[in-house]
């Protein structure tokens, strides 16, 4: 029976080794890297590659809301039921803007909400890292770096060797389930 590997994790005893390992992983070309720490560590911000997918999703949501509102108002006021209101043009965009703004906000926040759930893997209730029994220490005094199997240059053997060179307490395979 073959196990599905989600990633390879290394456990570190102090934040300095974790940051060094993260920098090395970045320099080695790994992109799907995540660090888990008991408290925020400033230097990690630059060391961990930015994989945030939420901002573009929210932006696209906002843009869709903006266009949806304009299309809807244009269809209603110009095509479906044109009424002359005090001589104003049918495509009376200054008064459309209020709805366009509202739908921009509405769509952006719905996309942010659904996007957050989707990116967190909902409806899955837990994170693969919790399959490691030692991971409970991450809220205490241990620092974890995980290179995920989805990384383009991930290789179960090579990545494990790579992390073992970083002077960790232990290197572990993280199971998918």
């Amino acid at each position: 029976m073959t196990r599905e590997i989600w990633g390879i994790a290394a456990e570190f005893a102090d934040p300095e080794s974790l940051v060094d390992a993260a920098v090395n992983a970045r320099d080695a070309g790994y992109r799907h890297v995540e660090a888990y720490t008991p408290y925020p560590i400033k230097q990690l911000e630059a060391a961990i590659p930015d994989r945030r997918a939420l901002p573009p999703i929210v932006f696209i949501g906002g843009l869709l809301g903006f266009l949806t509102a304009w299309a809807m108002e244009f269809y209603i006021a110009v095509i479906d039921y044109p009424i002359n209101v005090g001589g104003r043009p049918l495509n009376s965009w200054p008064s459309f803007i209020v709805i366009m703004f509202e739908l921009t906000v509405l769509f952006a926040s719905v996309f942010a909400f659904v996007g957050t759930l989707a990116l967190s893997g909902f409806p899955r209730p837990n994170h693969p890292m919790f399959n490691l029994s030692r991971f409970s220490q991450v809220s205490n005094n241990r620092f974890f770096l995980c290179i995920e199997a989805s990384d383009p240059i991930f290789d179960a053997k090579e990545t494990a060797d790579f992390l073992a060179d970083m002077d960790p307490v232990e290197v572990m395979e993280v199971d998918e389930d």
Binding site: G86, G87, R88, S92, P94, S95, I97, V98
Partner: peptide
Amino acid sequence: AYSQLLIVWAGD
């Protein structure tokens, strides 16, 4: 700036 325009536009 938009609020001013909208009110003038609506009032006409």
